[in-house]
Structure formats: structure tokens, C-alpha cells
Amino acid sequence: MNNGLLKQNMIENHYRALRVIIAVTVLIGIATTIVYLSGLSSGALNGTVIAAWIIVVTLIIGGSYFLVRRNEEQPWSPYIMVVAMLLTVLSCRYVSPIIETVSMMYLVIIISLLYFDRNLTLVTCVLCIVADILLLKAFPHLVPGESAALAVRYFTFMFATVIALMGSTATQKLLRLALEREQEARQVGQQLKKEAVLLTEKSEVLQESTQQIKKASETNRMA
């Protein structure tokens, strides 16, 4: 299997993930600012909180870009983007304290699927559950009113994990199969090239032999 193609895909996905993080941050920032300026936000949200959030997400994005840029070919580099996306989502959930923002956690799982790595997807789902628990402990006002809501939330995370693992496994197998077929085709092409060179050499030898026979027959005729 051509590891070069897998590595190239991984590097390209780093920057795709980074663009997703930036897009999510911009959209949340615009929405939060509109809510704040319209006076519909809670008392906890103010200009200072928004400014602090902008600084935090800027540091997250800048730090992840710096780390990925220096380690983009490392096998553990996808974890940088997953953690960066997770931290961004957590910060967005804090600055926009709406229960529905928990659905943004699925964006982190989607980011992990870009890399076709089952272990990465599994670790990502575990991180999402642990991070959500820690976030709710740190900021109790984000806890949903109904006690069963958390159980449903974490069961949904686990179901999403199973589905994500199945999808990641299937995609990984297809990718490996495609790379194996490409390698086989390349080997066949190289073999055909060698045979073509061999045929060319044999044809040249045959041509030389024919010329020698022709010269010999002409010499005998003259004699």
C-alpha cells in the first residue's frame, strides 16, 4: 500500500479541519454578537466575555496551526486537530449557553472521520463524553433541566461512536483496496515496460542477425 497517498490525504485533511474550525468560530461569533446587540442574551454574556472568547479561540486556532505546520506528517497530528475542534466547540458552548449547542459536539466526531482512523474516532468520542461531563461540572447552568436528558445525550454519543466506527472501518477498507489495486496496476505497468524493453532488444538482435545473414549470402554469391 502506498503510504505516501495516505500521508498526503492526512496533511490535506489537517487544513480542511482547520478551515472548518475557522468557519464554525466565525458563524458562532456572528450569531453571538447579533444576539448580544439585540438584547436577547442572558446577563452573563457581555462585551468582555465575547472579547475574551475571541482571544481564546484565536489562540486555539493559531496554536493548532503552528503545531500541525511543524508536525503535519506525524501519525499523531490528527489528534491535534480533533482536540482543537473540541476546545473550540466547548468555548462556543460556553459563550452561547443554549442546550442545543451540544449538537456541535458531533462536528468533532465528523472531523475525526476525515482521517479514516478507527482509533482516532473512538478516542474522539470518548473525549467528547468526558469533555461534556467536565464542562457541565464547571458550568452547572449548562446542565439540562431533565435528569434523563444527560443519559439520552451520552447514549446518543455512544450510538454515534458505533456508527462512526462502522463508517470509518468501511471507508478505510475501501481506501486500502483502492491503493492496493493502484499498486498492482503500477506493478503490471512496470512489468509490461520491462517486457517491451526486452522485446525491443530482441528485435534489434534479430535485425542484426538478419543483416549478417544477408551480408553472408551476398558474399557467397559474389564468390
Rank of each mutant, 00 (worst) to 15 (best):
L87F: 06
M105H: 08
L122K: 08
S203N: 13
Q172V: 00
S217K: 14
V89Q: 02
V205E: 15
T101C: 04
A17V: 13
L6I: 06
T200Y: 07
L45Q: 06
F66T: 07
S77E: 02
Y106H: 06
Q207S: 15
V82L: 01
L122V: 08
T25E: 06
Y36V: 01
K215M: 05
L120W: 01
T169A: 14
N119R: 11
A31I: 09
I111P: 03
I28W: 08
L198F: 10
S91I: 02
G63C: 05
D117H: 03
D132R: 10
A223R: 12
L198D: 14
A170L: 15
N2L: 09
H141V: 12
V26W: 03
Q191R: 11
I133R: 07
I22D: 01
V56K: 05
F116S: 07
A216Q: 12
R69P: 05
G63E: 07
E195K: 09
V143G: 00
S41L: 07
N13F: 06
V123K: 00
V152S: 04
A149M: 05
W53N: 09
R118K: 11
Q74D: 09
V57L: 03
Q211A: 13
T25D: 11
Q190D: 13
L122A: 15
L114C: 00
Y79H: 13
E146Q: 10
I34K: 02
V188G: 00
S64Q: 01
S112K: 00
V35W: 05
A131S: 15
K194T: 11
F139Q: 09
I98L: 12
V126W: 08
A52E: 07
L134Y: 09
Q190S: 12
I98Q: 10
Q8I: 09
D117A: 04
E72N: 03
I163S: 09
Q212Y: 03
A149C: 00
C128F: 02
A223S: 14
V205N: 12
E180L: 10
V68T: 09
K194R: 09
R16P: 01
M158N: 05
H14N: 04
L18S: 13
V56F: 12
I129M: 14
I21C: 04
M104I: 02
I21D: 03
V162F: 10
G39V: 08
F66Q: 06
A216E: 15
L18Q: 11
V143Y: 04
P140Q: 01
E100G: 04
V197A: 14
